[in-house]
Design a protein around this nucleic acid. Sequence first.
DNA 1: ACCCACATGTAAGACGTTACATGATTCC
DNA 2: GGAATCATGTAACGTCTTACATGTGGGT
Lengths: 176, 176
Amino acid sequence: MPKKRVLPYILLGLINNQTKMSGYQISQEFNHEIGEFWHASHSQIYPELQRMISDGWIEPDDAVKDSKSIFYLITPNGKNVLKEWLSEPLSEKDDLFSLKLYFIKDQDSPLLKNLVQQQLQINSEHYLHLLSRKKLVFSDESKVRDNYGHSLILNRAIEREHNHINWLKNTLDDLK
Amino acid sequence: MPKKRVLPYILLGLINNQTKMSGYQISQEFNHEIGEFWHASHSQIYPELQRMISDGWIEPDDAVKDSKSIFYLITPNGKNVLKEWLSEPLSEKDDLFSLKLYFIKDQDSPLLKNLVQQQLQINSEHYLHLLSRKKLVFSDESKVRDNYGHSLILNRAIEREHNHINWLKNTLDDLK
DNA sequence: ACCCACATGTAAGACGTTACATGATTCC
DNA sequence: GGAATCATGTAACGTCTTACATGTGGGT
């Protein structure tokens, strides 16, 4: 199976969030908030927008007659595509958790709880995996001495997972 | 300036860590510890090893006459290249901190303290940046309600930076 | 008139993935 | 002898980056 593309869904999500966006505005977005989680250059964005038009996900807004910018609107079909993407199960590999959360505006959306629960599951398994690797690879102090940098980042990774799991649990409680 | 490649330095670091490795062994490594931070498929690794030979970074170990595997050793030149890469200033963009730590075996290496200090600087700046974005974008509660998912991950990102900074500070103290 | 920010687009090349291909060894 | 694993390599393709290219509009 070919690897699932992410960029078109991000563009869809951005247009959906703001109701109406130009290619230039989208490319600027990656310098701000969404830039924490993803990046795309304008040379990627413009052709992608054309593809999305031909797929019927978005359409140019003919109401605005600006000599410079072209604004795009999401179509009903596009709204469905976005919702389906947001509903797809998270994978441990590509880590789309934060990105997808960014596109959920409503506190009461069932997608929200769903995403947090899935991520909690993924992180819990990963946490246990890291603990077992630590036990295996750093079974005694001499191994730590001989691979000190490695032992540092493994401990850091374990702590990070621990923190993330706690945050996810707290967030889940707040959502209930 | 062309974007700096990472893969060859990882291969160099792996070979250096283990003294001697075959392409197959390297590809297996990405299924284990180093896989937390990077991945490469065998179809990338084999040609890369050839390039590294022609650059004089590594050399095949002729002492081992295995009908299957080809083992590679790091050259003195390769050792220098690796050390220089580890000494290059960290950038906020590509986040090579964990990866580079992985290749530092000695607790007393000056590179260790150097890396932690650099990363501390980067994370501290990023932390302040996130706080200012939060103040700007979520200036009142209605903005939070209207972009709930976004506010969640922004708060999560702030907490994560905070945790990471604390860990870096503690680690730095331990190193002194 | 000139410069700069805005705005959109195309082309070439680097990098990485999946798929294709081949051969040796080990285990049953 | 057949299957699975070990081991190396090439080919085709998709994605993303950098560079090239063009035009508009506002400020001085």
